[in-house]
Every structure is written in structure tokens, then in C-alpha cells.
């Protein structure tokens, strides 16, 4: 357990061994549908498809998926309400088509968020980084990103433990103390990160690090059946989304 529920889900998902490219086509396709199709029924279809695929064949734990949607929902709720409140002459009021606009905005955003979540809960970030390389992102940048991915777990672990140790010694027993402790915590984690980088450098130099952090690419072959089903499914959503709208 790494402590990041979405990451844990991605590594143990039934779709973990599927080609990241296949999953990208599916999820980005769903995102585009969520954005481009009219909210009803397009967004509903996208959200439904992404959720059913995640909880069904990809076997993402429902609890993880549900919790992960909560954060975007809070933003979407506040954002959508603000968007449809009208600043009138004398004060605030509802825009004329408030309910419809808020509904449509929320539907698009929920659909888009679940589609991205389908990707996030089935594909570890480290599988997606090689795809960036193929999209033309320089190798050095992808390598930096892969080090970020590895080190953030090491640092998150330090962060949690130091915080627990501070809490045990009453470091978070008032707002004032909590701020002081958080400053010390952030500084300690930053110093750890420098130290880690230095020590990793020596560790890797011993293994012949010369130019970069090249590793053997993992072979996750693309599935024709999966791609075909993706195209048919996306086609169906687009058709239903435009015809029924």
C-alpha cells in the first residue's frame, strides 16, 4: 500500500497489463465525448460508461472510485453555482436559465472527471510516462518526471511519519503550534529530498549511470479487440449523444 488510493488501484487493476496506448485512446475518447457532446444524454452516457468499465471489467474498488470523485465534485458544485448566479442591479439572483446551465456544466464536468479517473485507476503514472516520450516530450523531461514519481512516495512516507512523530509530541495541539510544526516538517522533507537525490546519484553512478536513466521498456501489447470495442463504443456514444439530444 502506498497510501495513494488511486495509485494502489491502478497497480492492482485488472487492466494493469493492457497497453497504456489502448487505455489512452479509450479514456481520451470519452473525455472528448464528455466535452463535445450535448450534456444530455452525452455526458450521462460517458459517465455511465466510465463508471461501469472501472467497476466492472477493470475491477477498481468502488470505494476508491467513489472517494476519488468527491474532490472534483466539490469544485464542480461551487463552480457551477457561481457560474449561474447573476449579479443584478440590486443584488444577486439566478440567471434566467440557471438550472439548465448548472445542470449542463455539472454533467460535462462529472463525465470528464470520471473518464480521466478511469484512466487514473487502471494505469500507473509510470506506464503513461513512456507515452509522453512518443508524443515528443524530451527524454530528459520524462526521466525527471519518473524520478518525481519514485521519490514522491519516499517523501510522502517521510511526511506522514514526521507528522505522526510531531503529533505524538503535541506539535499539532493548537493552530499556532501546528503552523510551527508544519514549517519544520516542510523543511525536513526538503532537506530529505536533497539528501535522497545526492545518495541516489552515488548509488546509480555505481551502476554505470552515464547519460540518462534508461530502463528496459515494458512490453504491454495492444489488443485489437479492445481497440475495436473502444471505437464501436465511442461511435455508439457519439451517435446516441447527437441523435437523442
Amino acid at each position: 500500500m502506498s497510501g495513494l488510493a488511486i495509485d494502489d488501484a491502478a497497480w492492482s487493476s485488472a487492466w494493469r497489463r493492457r497497453s497504456p496506448a489502448d487505455k489512452l485512446v479509450l479514456c481520451l475518447g470519452l473525455v472528448v465525448c464528455a466535452l463535445a457532446l450535448p450534456a444530455w444524454p452525452g455526458s450521462g452516457l460517458v459517465a455511465l460508461t466510465a463508471t461501469v468499465l472501472a467497476l466492472g471489467p477493470a475491477r477498481v474498488p468502488p470505494r476508491t472510485f467513489g472517494r476519488a470523485v468527491r474532490w472534483p465534485l466539490a469544485f464542480i458544485g461551487v463552480g457551477a453555482l457561481t457560474a449561474v448566479v447573476q449579479v443584478g442591479g440590486g443584488g444577486l439572483g439566478w440567471a434566467p436559465d440557471a438550472a439548465a446551465r448548472a445542470g449542463s456544466l455539472t454533467a460535462h464536468a462529472v463525465a470528464g472527471s470520471t473518464a480521466v479517473l478511469l484512466l487514473a485507476t487502471t494505469t500507473p503514472v509510470s506506464d503513461l510516462l513512456p507515452a509522453l516520450r512518443r508524443l515528443g516530450v524530451p527524454a530528459a523531461v520524462v526521466e525527471v518526471a519518473s524520478v518525481v514519481y519514485r521519490l514522491l512516495f519516499v517523501l510522502l512516507d517521510s511526511l506522514r511519519t514526521i507528522r505522526e512523530a510531531q503529533t505524538a509530541r503535541m506539535g499539532h495541539s493548537s493552530v499556532r503550534r501546528s503552523y510551527r510544526s508544519s514549517g519544520a516538517l516542510a523543511a525536513a522533507v526538503l532537506v530529505r529530498s536533497w539528501d535522497r537525490a545526492r545518495r541516489l546519484q552515488e548509488g546509480l553512478a555505481g551502476r554505470g549511470m552515464d547519460t540518462g536513466l534508461r530502463v528496459l521498456p515494458e512490453v504491454l501489447p495492444s489488443s485489437r479487440a479492445f481497440l475495436a470495442a473502444t471505437l464501436v463504443g465511442l461511435g455508439a456514444i457519439v451517435t446516441a449523444g447527437t441523435v437523442l439530444a
Binding site: 500507473p124 503514472v125 509510470s126 519518473s146 524520478v147 514519481y149 519514485r150 535522497r196 545518495r199 541516489l200 552515488e202 548509488g203 546509480l204 555505481g206 551502476r207 554505470g208 549511470m209 552515464d210 536513466l213 534508461r214 530502463v215 528496459l216 515494458e218
Partner: peptide, 18 residues
């Protein structure tokens, strides 16, 4: 101090590739 890669097999491949 030595493991930099997210996946075990990839990490082990680093030395031989170099």
C-alpha cells in the same frame, strides 16, 4: 539509495543497459 524506477524489473535493467 539505489532504487529509482517505479517498476522492479525496469530498475534491475538499468545497469545492464548502461
Amino acid at each position: 539509495d539505489q532504487l529509482f524506477s517505479a517498476s522492479v524489473a525496469q530498475d534491475v535493467s538499468f545497469g545492464p543497459l548502461n
